[in-house]
Design a protein around this nucleic acid. Structure first.
Length: 475
DNA sequence: TTTTGAGTTGTTCGA
DNA sequence: GTCGAACAACTCAAA
C-alpha cells in the first residue's frame, strides 16, 4: 500500500518545534505530503497535572506554528497504537516517523506502535532529536555504560554535534486533512489543583518564545552563568528547561549557542554546557537502567528506614511550604506559584525531605512530577536519587545540607525568601501574595497568617538523625 | 588482574 | 572573620 508519493505521518510528542527537527526535516525533503499528528495517548494520560496542562499549551502553540507553514496539526485521543493504525487506514499513509524517546513508558508504547504499523506494511520508525548523544554510543573502555558524571562528560565533551537544521519553509499538505479532535475537549488542565491562572503568568510557551529566551540568555547572562547560577534570588539561569522538556527548542541549538558563546570568551558558558550534559547523563542512565525511574538505583538502599507515608504532617508541611525552614518554604512556594524551582533550591528541598525529614525520595519525585511545569522524566529521577543517596554518583553520606547555612550562603540578602514568603514582609511582593490565590481551600494557610516560629524539624536535629541512619551500615 | 585516583553542588570544628 | 582538616566506606574508570 505504501508508494513513494503517499503522505507521511509525523507523530509529534515531546518535540513541538519545526527548527532542527530531524524527522520533520527528513519528511519535508521527500516532497511527499506531511500530516502532523499529536495523540493524547496512554503515556500522556499518565502525566502529572502540571506537565499535562503545560503540554496542552505547548500543543496549542505548536498547532498555530504549523499553520504558518501551511500545515495543520491533527489531534486524536486513544491508545497510540490504535489511533495511528486508524489514521493510516483513513489517509493511505505509507510512512510514520517520530522523534525517539528513551524513558521506559515511552519505549514500550513506541515499540508497540512500530510493530503494529510494520505488520500493516507501513514503514515506521524513529529519528534522534531529543538528546545530543544516543545512549548506546557512549561507553567506557570496558564497553559498559557510564555510572559517574565526570568520566561521562570527558567522553562526550569533544564530540562533533551536527549543526541544527533549518525549519522547513513550507510543508506539502495532503489532498484532504484527517478530522481532528478539539484540544479544549481534552481539558488537559483538569488535574491542576491550584489555580492554573496563577501559574499561567509564569510560563513561556512555544518555539518562538523559546528561541527568544535562548537569545536573551546568551546575550545577557551566559557570560556570568558560573558566578550567578547558584543564587536563587538572581536571574542567573537560562530557564530553558521548560522549553527543552517539550522540545520547543532543540538541545543541539542550545549546545551550539553555548559553544559559540565560549568561543567568544564568555567563560560562564562552560558550566552551562556541563548542565546540558547532565541532562544527557540522565537520559543515558534512564536508558541503560530504567529502574532509575521507579526503584532505588542501588538496591542496597531498599532497607533504608524512610517514611513512605505521604499523609504524615511533615510531608504535608513540606508540600505546602510551611515547614518553618525559610529556604525550603520559599522554594516550595516558588514551585506552587511558578511551576518551576531554582536548581539550588531543588537540592535544598530534596535534602530536607529525604534527610532531615527522613521521607522517601519517591514522595518528592511524585510531587515534582505533579507540580513542575518543566518536569522531565529522566532529570527528575536522577535528581531525586542523586540528592537522597541511592542514585549513581551519589553524594557522600555526610553531605547533609543545613538549610540555614545554605540560606546564608546562597540567599544572603534574602531576596529569594522575601519574594516567595509573604509573612516575612509588611509589604509583600506580588509573587508571595499570589501564592494565596493558587492554594487549594483545604490548605491550612491564608493571607495574614504569621510565619511558623519553629521548624518542624530543626537543622541540627535533622542532621544528627540522618547521619545516624546513614552511619548504621545495616540499614 | 590489580591497583590507583577520583567522585557536581557540604558542614563543622578548631586553630 | 577565615581557612584547612576531618567526616566512611564504597564504587567506578582507566592504567
Amino acid at each position: 500500500m505504501a508508494d513513494d508519493t503517499s503522505p507521511i505521518i509525523l507523530w509529534f510528542r515531546r518535540d513541538l518545534r519545526l527548527t532542527d527537527h530531524p524527522a520533520l526535516d527528513a519528511a519535508a525533503r521527500t516532497g511527499r505530503p506531511v500530516i502532523p499528528v499529536f495523540v493524547h495517548d496512554e503515556v500522556v494520560e499518565g502525566y502529572g497535572a502540571a506537565p499535562k496542562w503545560r503540554l496542552g499549551l505547548g500543543v496549542e502553540s505548536f498547532a498555530a506554528r504549523l499553520g504558518e507553514v501551511g500545515s495543520r496539526l491533527t489531534l486524536r485521543r486513544g491508545r497510540a497504537e490504535n489511533v495511528l493504525a486508524k489514521l493510516v487506514e483513513e489517509t493511505g499513509v505509507g510512512t510514520v516517523w517520530w522523534t525517539r524517546a528513551y524513558d521506559p513508558p515511552s519505549i514500550a508504547r513506541d515499540r508497540a506502535v512500530k510493530s503494529s504499523l510494520t505488520d500493516r506494511g507501513v514503514e515506521a520508525g524513529s529519528l534522534p532529536g531529543h538528546i545530543l548523544f544516543e545512549p548506546w554510543t557512549v561507553e567506557t573502555k570496558a564497553g559498559e555504560y557510564y555510572k559517574v558524571y565526570t568520566p561521562y562528560w570527558r567522553a562526550v565533551k569533544d564530540r562533533d554535534v551536527g549543526e541544527p537544521l533549518r525549519a522547513p519553509s513550507a510543508l506539502p499538505a495532503p489532498d484532504a486533512w484527517p478530522t481532528s479532535e478539539a484540544i479544549e475537549d481534552w481539558d488537559m488542565g483538569a488535574g491542576m489543583e491550584r489555580g492554573a491562572a496563577v501559574v499561567a503568568e509564569h510560563v513561556t510557551v512555544g518555539e518562538e518564545a523559546a528561541r527568544t529566551r535562548l537569545a536573551t540568555f546568551v546575550r545577557d547572562r551566559i557570560a556570568t552563568y558560573s558566578r550567578r547560577r547558584d543564587y536563587p534570588g538572581l536571574d542567573g539561569t537560562s530557564d530553558l528547561s521548560e522549553n527543552l522538556t517539550y522540545g520547543e527548542i532543540s538541545i543541539r541549538t542550545c549546545w551550539h549557542a553555548g559553544q559559540r558563546a565560549l568561543d567568544e570568551g564568555k567563560d560562564g558558558a562552560a558550566d552551562w554546557l556541563q548542565e546540558l550534559v547532565w541532562r544527557e547523563f540522565a537520559y543515558h542512565l534512564v536508558y541503560h537502567t530504567p529502574r532509575l525511574m521507579t526503584d532505588n538505583w542501588r538496591e542496597k538502599w531498599d532497607s533504608f528506614p524512610w517514611n513512605e507515608d505521604e499523609r504524615v504532617a511533615e510531608v504535608k508541611a513540606w508540600k505546602q511550604g510551611r515547614t518553618g525552614i525559610r529556604f525550603v518554604d520559599a522554594a516550595m512556594r516558588e514551585l506552587w506559584v511558578t511551576g518551576r524551582m531554582h536548581n539550588r533550591a531543588r537540592m535544598v528541598v530534596a535534602n530536607y525531605l529525604t534527610k532531615n525529614l527522613m521521607c522517601h525520595w519517591k514522595i518528592g519525585l511524585r510531587w515534582f512530577e505533579d507540580t513542575l511545569v518543566d518536569w522531565d522524566p529522566a532529570s527528575n529521577s536522577l535528581g531525586w536519587q542523586w540528592a537522597s543517596g541511592p542514585g549513581p554518583d551519589a553524594t557522600p553520606y555526610f553531605r547533609v545540607f543545613n538549610p540555614v547555612t545554605q540560606l546564608d550562603k546562597f540567599d544572603k540578602d534574602r531576596a529569594y525568601t522575601t519574594r516567595f514568603i509573604a509573612e516575612l514582609s509588611d509589604d509583600p511582593p506580588a509573587e508571595a501574595l499570589s501564592f494565596y490565590d493558587a492554594i487549594p481551600r483545604h490548605w491550612p494557610m491564608a493571607r495574614g497568617d504569621t510565619y511558623p516560629d519553629k521548624p518542624i524539624v530543626g537543622p541540627k536535629e535533622g542532621r544528627e538523625r540522618a547521619l545516624e541512619a546513614y552511619g548504621n551500615r545495616d540499614f
